[in-house]
Design a protein around this nucleic acid. Structure first.
Lengths: 349, 349
DNA sequence: ATTAGCACTCAAATTAAATGAGTGCTAACA
DNA sequence: TGTTAGCACTCATTTAATTTGAGTGCTAAT
């Protein structure tokens, strides 16, 4: 059997309608919904074909049809003309975004929030992460009598502050010397460069201040890990409850808990970065998700990858019911990542 | 009518039972539940009295009884002998807590998480906040050709990193001078000390580097605000869904959304700090909450105030159904705040 | 190839009946 | 006088029966 143009049109209409209502859609509805004036009977015949082809199913005998995962997939791959407007909305997003973006963390949280409230789906965003980041420099200073502050700056301007308790007071001159020592060794160092040998050499040269170095190493290692690891921010989990097919108590609880499971989200983000297409967009429908849990069964996830100038990448994800408005989500994500790329490159100039 | 000892015992039994089951409790149940061997008929008589006194109600004619807010209040104030064990659990908590507490933020998040998973209620914790914090010192350093890093340390060791774009490169010596200038003026300054006059004087003395100062002022002001404002971390919102009386779709959505409303939580934290009793514990039952929203109607909130050595205070809150296990919650909170006070004072030594 | 018509199906909504936990009251008892 | 057994009554909840209506597949006519 052929999947001709008319069948495609009908399938598209079914999916579109189901997205709106969340209810199985019947032949009568479609016969009115489309522009190809056909009677419900004809539609019924076509629907029977589409069902045979595996794009739609009846949840029970003599109910309307709902799309299968394959149906959604076809929709996403072929039917979703992304040549649509939706750009007014984007401008809005942009302004909301730029309002007060001083810290990366705040900004990412805000992105997640804005995105969730715009789309009415659950959203996540990861911080950008770097491969094998290097120490840019370390700055040691005396805070008060018994504590020093080590500021460690790592690739991508990840900054780690580390308070260190010292039991002897250092005079200015000594702090200066220590600073020079530290930077001589550590500037440009990656994690694998920091070995016992290096540590020993430094300790020797630091003499009686060797103790201070301990704290610094600790801080450096933590800073590098932080730059490598990715923070994950989520927002709008409650939106799950807005979709009847997800909102019965047990299902909702599981979804919300899964959505708080940073580990799983992390896996998803990793997978998304690897698989993303040339548009940096990746769509998982139900089972397709790399997170193999029953909870994901009922969800679709659309991810986008954004990029800092220096090559560090992060992931944005939108979690919704399978009948989510893919077109809108994809276009929103596309413009958002463009925004972000823009902002990040501006920041550096 | 008198609220004699027997009535109290019965009331206590009713509340305890209702806490377990969440179902209205009848006379028969109580006649078995208590040690004062009475028949259900007698209990019924007593219950009628308790109802007249306003401590319990029937949700509908000829159902069992459930406690009123007044009933819970009495329970909390009088009946809740806190001379109970529950200390094994605490030790556990402690260990989980200490596992990896490098950054305050991480630690607070962890506290919220552990607490939520231990109690099965929703939890929040605020960062400690300071009154009128002062700048401890500022450290300026060159990161690369066109950016500088200002590290601003404020009372309570709140550290703010501020990247500043500079369009002229500074040599080491100049950075040093600038550092001295900045610290001369800003060390020990509170927000109200930073006025136009001061800024102007500094700018004059900085000469062609006046531009750099802009960024520093901005950073200083932000840092002070951050030290003053309180971050709020929440966890376990999904626990609401575990209690049937809270878990119908609309109610749950509202609760979860309210629980994400940082503004409201902030108000609550403020109120809690002011009202807390000598034990630093404060209990809000339903309407008593300072957050006047319908959603709070069905909740009770127990808060505890913890304290950093230097006088900065933070709030921990536990949100649950009115039938929450007050005894357990209060004792958990008490030991937790002790833990925290302990940890914080250790940190400083 | 399309469509009107009709008998048929079945989830969901509605109504009805059965169940049972719990009550208040009365009268008997220690 | 306080306590209790017994009984009629209430009403949310459960279960069963029914009605409703959207939607289907098939057939025969256009």
């Amino acid at each position: 059997m052929e999947l001709d143009d008319r069948k495609l049109k009908i399938l598209k209409a079914i999916i579109a309608n189901y997205m709106e209502t969340g209810e199985p859609v019947g032949s009568r509805t479609i016969s009115k919904y489309t522009d190809l004036n056909l009677s419900s009977a004809t539609i019924r015949n076509e629907m029977a074909d589409l069902e045979e082809l595996g794009y739609i199913v009846q949840p029970y005998t003599s109910a309307g049809r709902i799309p299968t995962d394959a149906g959604y997939r076809l929709y996403v791959d072929k039917l979703m003309s992304d040549k649509d407007e939706e750009f007014a909305e984007l401008k809005e997003t942009r302004n909301e975004l730029l309002e007060r973006v001083d810290r990366l963390e705040e900004m990412l949280k805000q992105v997640a929030r804005v995105l969730a409230s715009n789309t009415q789906y659950a959203t996540m965003i990861t911080s950008p992460h770097y491969q094998d980041p290097k120490v840019k420099f370390v700055q040691l200073s005396q805070v008060d009598d018994d504590s020093m502050l080590a500021v460690i700056v790592v690739d991508g301007n990840v900054i780690k502050n580390k308070m260190i308790n010292v039991h002897q007071e250092l005079v200015n001159d000594e702090v200066l010397k220590l600073n020079i020592l530290i930077n001589t060794f550590l500037q440009g160092a990656a994690l694998h460069d920091i070995n016992i040998e290096m540590i020993e050499t430094m300790k020797q040269q630091a003499g009686k201040y060797a103790g201070v170095l301990e704290g610094i190493f600790q801080g450096v290692i933590e800073a590098i890990h932080e730059a490598e690891e990715l923070e994950i921010y989520t927002s709008g989990g409650t939106n799950f409850l807005k979709y009847p097919e997800l909102s019965d108590a047990t299902k909702a609880t599981k979804l919300l808990e899964a959505f708080e499971d940073k580990k799983a989200l992390n896996d998803l983000a990793d997978d998304a970065i690897n698989k993303a297409d040339e548009n940096n967009i990746q769509i998982y429908i139900g089972d397709e998700s790399p997170v193999k849990s029953d909870d994901m069964q009922d969800l679709s996830v659309v991810t986008a990858t954004y990029q800092l100038k220096e090559g560090a990448k992060g992931t944005i994800g939108i979690f919704g019911p399978k009948r989510m408005d893919y077109k809108k989500v994809v276009s929103t994500l596309k413009s958002l990542t463009e925004e972000l790329d823009d902002i990040f490159s501006k920041k550096k100039e």
